[in-house]
Simulated scan of single mutants.
Amino acid sequence: MPTKDATKPLTLTERARRAQLIGVAIDLVARHGYAGTSLARIAEAAGISKAAVLYHFPSKDAVLRAAYAAVLESLVEFVGAAVGPRTGAPALEAYIRSLVEYMRVHPDHTRMIIESLVAESGAPDGPGRQETVAGLITAAVAAGDYRAGTDARATAVIVNGAIDAIVSAGLADPSFRTADAAEQLITMLSGAYRTS
């Protein structure tokens, strides 16, 4: 089967098939890990041939990159909608709550993110996330919600580490109350940094 011509727009059927393959890849990575998700496994789970998968994506890695991008897009949209209308400390609090909530509701997406980051870099956190949180902390200081002199970078590292630990505990034990843990993190930040 020939490969899809990248210069032509996707048809409705092609978009639907790509979406199906992305969904299958997310599910397989969540269950079997990045290394355990093969092109053959993707094809079998989708009920099509490997050649049909390769028509839509040039390789297994291309499918997995598309799946990772779809998960990140969904996550950013969800968190962005929660943070968007807020400023200062409430924006940081909305970020924490919405990120933890998204990860709780979408454990397969969480595993996809973790597997992809580990497979790509061996590091569970990228500079973009740290900069985002540091920016929210800097905005909270500028709004007068957090004390002047709050170290945005160090606090961002602490917040991201705490979020990672909350999400990890939730993945390991579905009865762990991640929303309560997120509220505890917010309470700790308020106690340490709030001006009033």
Rank of each mutant, 00 (worst) to 15 (best):
M1R: 11
T3V: 15
D5M: 14
T7I: 15
T7V: 13
K8I: 12
L10H: 08
L12M: 14
T13N: 08
R18V: 00
R18N: 00
Q20A: 02
Q20T: 00
Q20W: 02
G23H: 00
A25P: 10
A25I: 12
I26L: 00
D27W: 08
L28N: 03
L28Q: 02
V29P: 00
R31S: 15
R31Y: 08
R31W: 08
H32F: 08
G33C: 07
Y34C: 11
G36W: 06
S38P: 01
L39D: 02
I42G: 01
A43V: 11
E44T: 07
A45G: 07
A45S: 09
A46P: 10
A46L: 14
A46G: 13
G47Q: 01
I48M: 15
K50P: 10
A52I: 12
A52S: 15
Y55K: 10
F57S: 07
S59Y: 01
A62F: 02
V63N: 01
L64T: 06
R65E: 12
A66D: 06
A67K: 03
L72C: 03
L72Q: 04
E73I: 05
F78G: 09
F78D: 14
F78R: 13
R86L: 15
T87R: 14
A89N: 00
A89T: 04
A91W: 00
A91Y: 02
E93T: 05
Y95H: 09
Y95M: 08
V100P: 06
V100S: 04
Y102S: 04
Y102N: 09
R104F: 13
H106D: 14
P107A: 04
P107K: 05
D108H: 12
H109L: 12
R111K: 00
I114G: 09
E115S: 07
S116H: 15
S116P: 10
A119T: 11
A119C: 02
P124V: 15
P127Y: 14
G128R: 12
R129V: 12
R129C: 11
Q130N: 12
E131C: 13
T132Q: 06
V133I: 11
A134T: 03
A134L: 03
G135C: 05
G135L: 09
L136T: 03
T138V: 04
A139Q: 06
V141K: 03
A142K: 01
Y146M: 02
R147G: 07
R147F: 04
A148Q: 14
G149T: 09
T150F: 03
T150R: 08
T150G: 07
T150D: 03
D151M: 07
D151Y: 11
A152H: 06
A156E: 04
I158Y: 08
G161N: 05
G161H: 02
A162V: 12
I163C: 01
I163D: 02
D164I: 14
A165M: 15
A165Y: 12
A165T: 15
V167H: 01
S168Q: 10
L171A: 00
D173P: 06
D173R: 00
F176G: 02
T178E: 09
T178R: 12
A179W: 02
D180Q: 14
A181I: 06
A182I: 08
A182P: 06
E183I: 06
E183T: 06
I186Y: 01
T187Y: 11
M188Q: 10
L189V: 11
L189N: 11
G191R: 03
A192G: 02
R194F: 08
